[in-house]
Design a protein around this nucleic acid. Structure first.
Lengths: 213, 213
DNA sequence: CCGGCAACATACTACTCAGTACGTTGGATG
DNA sequence: CATCCAACGTACTGAGTAGTATGTTGCCGG
């Protein structure tokens, strides 16, 4: 007898809601938010719009849920790889690798998350939806803050040169997140190969900050 | 008595076509390709669709022209900053700065160019349009190739460690192009301030390759 | 065994918007 | 001064789609 209103919980991935989220992520990735229709999503699932509108009040709400889920994936992966006492630069490297592995394994959700970020400018939303969007973007700020804090720690310890953290963290995230744009899933691509890609990009990002290789 | 069919020339910026291009870049930046309507473009110009369809056969053609123009801006700026005999890492730094200054000064065109890149996956185009899109994406490959070649040169000279150039050039471009997503034009933002931002990001990118600061 | 509700499907409506067909005008040309 | 055409404006159509109103079904508790 689970509550039918726990939209904010992270059950996405199980049950009917989870299937809808996966299909929506796929559809939004392929065509983008505006071009993807609700019928596209239901076609992927082999059902009709009725099912989707039974669970979500609007297309925007569905999109936001996919976006939020993508951010939660990032947050969980990166948080769980953070350990006390590790050198900040090593920590940053591991965080970057963790982020990249989420990007490559959950490319649909991650591309949607980037779309949501771009959508920020286009104010094509109702006031209530803007509130929701704000909340998700705060999740993103919090996420970026994890990296920024680690950069600041490294700087305090003298492992990085003094610099504008607000600025370089953008470049840092850019080097990582650009992967959502060029990366394509290959068949027979081993876990090890993805790991190699993640480490290469992560090494680039940490070196970019001024960390010695 | 200028030819009325020289669509491929880079006259965009002058005359009626140039105004349409500017307005289209603005509209596509604000709402994205799918969400922006031709009427949005004509509203910006204070005219009607008639004017636009007199110059462009379809919305996609207009978008492609904006995309192409954006790439031409990049190519011109970067090519004109390349000089013979300069050390590859210095060259890369200057190229990155040039790219970033185009991004910040022509944010609309550059955001559209990134959209066009993302659109590649979504095959929402006719066969003829796909051909056009291919041609523009080849422009982009050529552009990326300028950076890749310089990275290879630096590696040959021992200024950079051996690494997967195909991969790191993606991270390099990512650090630069991510600027199209977070950068916002500020009033009273001096040319010097923009220069400082460009140099910070460029320094990050070159360092990421393994170049000594 | 029966009422009730969650979880859908079906069948619509209203609206946006790309593209078109055609009218209008002003200036260059002869 | 008549003609012609580029450069628009006006008015319309058709297709696609978000959202809704209303069935239908199967399961679950009493």
């Amino acid at each position: 007898m689970s509550s039918a209103l726990d939209t904010t919980l992270l059950e996405g991935g199980e049950g009917s809601r989870g299937e809808i989220l996966d299909a929506a992520a796929e559809a939004f990735m392929r065509k983008g938010y505006a071009a993807a229709s609700i019928d596209d999503v239901s076609d992927i699932l082999g059902c009709t719009k009725g099912r989707i509108y039974h669970h979500y009040r609007s297309k925007a709400d569905l999109f936001f849920d996919v976006h939020r889920r993508g951010m939660q994936m990032d947050l969980q992966a990166v948080r769980s790889c953070m350990v006390e006492g590790r050198a900040p630069l090593d920590q940053l490297f591991e965080m970057a690798v963790a982020h990249l592995e989420v990007v490559m394994s959950q490319i649909a959700y991650q591309r949607v998350a980037v779309q949501g970020l771009e959508m920020h400018l286009a104010g094509q939303t109702t006031p209530e939806q803007r509130k929701t969007l704000r909340a998700i973007l705060m999740l993103r700020d919090e996420y970026e803050g994890l990296f920024a804090a680690e950069i600041a720690r490294a700087t305090e310890q003298g492992a990085l040169p003094e610099q504008d953290v607000r600025l370089v963290v953008k470049a840092f995230m850019g080097a990582l997140n650009w992967t959502t744009i060029w990366y394509r899933q290959r068949r027979n691509q081993s876990q090890a190969e993805r790991r190699r890609i993640a480490e290469s990009i992560a090494r680039f990002a940490v070196r970019g900050l001024g960390g010695r290789p």
